[in-house]
C-alpha cells in the first residue's frame, strides 16, 4: 500500500514534522499579498514603537509630562516641545505617547476579557445546545439590541463604594483604569459569542469529536482539545476586530469624561475640552483623534487581511 502521499512523505521526511507550521506559513504567504493587511501591520508596529518611546524621549528631552505649567499653556511647537504644549502646559507629544499606551492597553485587555466571556458562552451554547443555548442566545440578542453607549456611561458613573469597594480604591487611578476595561468587556462579547457558537455547532458534529465522546471524553476535554483548536482562526480574526471597537469605546467614554480620569492621559480624554481647543489650538484637537482613527483603521484592515489569509476559498486580490 504505497499511496502518492506516503511516497512523497517518505521522500521528504522533514515535511511531516513541520506540517502544523506549514499551514501557518501558507497563510503568511497569502496574508502578504493583502496590501491593506500588510500596510496595517507595519503601521501598528510603528504605533506601538511610538507609544513605547514615551519614557526614553521624556528622559532625552528632560521633561516631565505630568507637571502642569500654567505659564506655558498652548505653546507652539519648539525644540523642547516638538508638538507644542496642551492646556496645562504639558508636552503634547509625550502625552500622546503615554495616552496611546493607555488606549492600546485598554483595547487589548478589554478584548481579552470580553473575548474570554464570548468564547466561553459561545462554546457552552454551541456544545450543549438545548435550553442553555436558547437562554444564552436570547441574552446575546438582548445585549446586542441595547443602546450600548448610554449604558456604558451609567456603568462608568457607578459609585464603586456602593458596590462594597473601599473609598480609597474607588478613587484611585487603577480603579478608573480597570473599571473601563471591565465595563467594556461586559458589553462587547456578543459578536465573539455568536461566532464561536456557530463554529462550535459545526465542529462538534465531526466524527473525531464523536469518537472522543465514544471513548468516554467529557465535555470539558472535548471542548478544549478538539473544538477550540479547530475554531481558533475565526476567533483570532474576531478578536482583532474587537480590539478596534474597544479602542473606539474607550476613547468616546474618556472623551465624555466617564473613562480614563485625568491627569492620566488617554487619546480620548485629551479631547475633553475640545470645544476650547477648536478655537484656541485646532492642531491639538486633531492629533489624538487622528491617532485613534489610524489605529482603529489599521486594526480593521489587519483583521480583513487575516480573514483573507485564513479563508481557503478567498481568491487573490
Amino acid at each position: 500500500m504505497t499511496d502518492v502521499a506516503t511516497e512523497a512523505a517518505l521522500a521528504h521526511p522533514s515535511r511531516g514534522i513541520h506540517a502544523a507550521q506549514s499551514v501557518w506559513s501558507l497563510r503568511w504567504r497569502r496574508f502578504r499579498h493583502h496590501r491593506g493587511g500588510m500596510a496595517s501591520l507595519v503601521i501598528l508596529a510603528l504605533l506601538v514603537l511610538f507609544c513605547l518611546s514615551a519614557y526614553p524621549l521624556e528622559r532625552y528631552l528632560g521633561l516631565d509630562s505630568n507637571t502642569t505649567d500654567l505659564l506655558s499653556r498652548y505653546d507652539p511647537p519648539s525644540a523642547t516641545h516638538w508638538l507644542g504644549t496642551d492646556e496645562g502646559g504639558r508636552d503634547e507629544l509625550l502625552r500622546l505617547m503615554y495616552g496611546g499606551q493607555i488606549s492600546l492597553l485598554v483595547g487589548l485587555l478589554a478584548t481579552v476579557i470580553g473575548g474570554g466571556i464570548g468564547v466561553s458562552l459561545g462554546l457552552l451554547a454551541g456544545y450543549f445546545g438545548g435550553k442553555l443555548d436558547s437562554f444564552l442566545m436570547r441574552l446575546t440578542d438582548g445585549v446586542i439590541a441595547l443602546p450600548l453607549l448610554p449604558l456604558l456611561i451609567v456603568l462608568a458613573a457607578l459609585d464603586l463604594t456602593k458596590l462594597g469597594f473601599s473609598s480609597e480604591f474607588a478613587h484611585s487611578g487603577a480603579a478608573g483604569f480597570w473599571r473601563i476595561v471591565v465595563i467594556i468587556a461586559l458589553v462587547d462579547w456578543t459578536a465573539i459569542a455568536r461566532l464561536v457558537r456557530a463554529a462550535t455547532l459545526a465542529v462538534k458534529e465531526r466524527d473525531y469529536v464523536v469518537a472522543a465522546r465514544a471513548s468516554g471524553a467529557g465535555a470539558f476535554y472535548t471542548m478544549t482539545t478538539h473544538v477550540l483548536p479547530n475554531i481558533v482562526t475565526p476567533i483570532i480574526v474576531a478578536f482583532t476586530l474587537t480590539v478596534g471597537r474597544v479602542i473606539l469605546f474607550e476613547s468616546v467614554l474618556s472623551f465624555l469624561g466617564f473613562g480614563i480620569v485625568p491627569p492620566t492621559p488617554s487619546w480620548g480624554n485629551m479631547l475633553n475640552n475640545a470645544q476650547e481647543l477648536v478655537t484656541t489650538a485646532p492642531a491639538l484637537a486633531i492629533y489624538p483623534g487622528l491617532l485613534i482613527f489610524i489605529t482603529v483603521i489599521a486594526v480593521n484592515f489587519l483583521g480583513d487581511g487575516m480573514q483573507h489569509a485564513f479563508d481557503p476559498r478567498s481568491e487573490r486580490r
Binding site: 500500500m1 499511496d3 502521499a5 506516503t6 517518505l10 511531516g16 514534522i17 506540517a19 502544523a20
Partner: peptide, 19 residues
C-alpha cells in the same frame, strides 16, 4: 494497521482516505 512508523509525527491531511 500497515502504516510506516514515521506516520506518527505527521498530520491527517498528509494521508489518503485509505490511510
Amino acid at each position: 494497521v500497515g502504516l510506516p512508523a514515521d506516520a506518527l509525527n505527521r498530520y491527517p491531511h498528509e494521508f489518503s482516505g485509505g490511510q
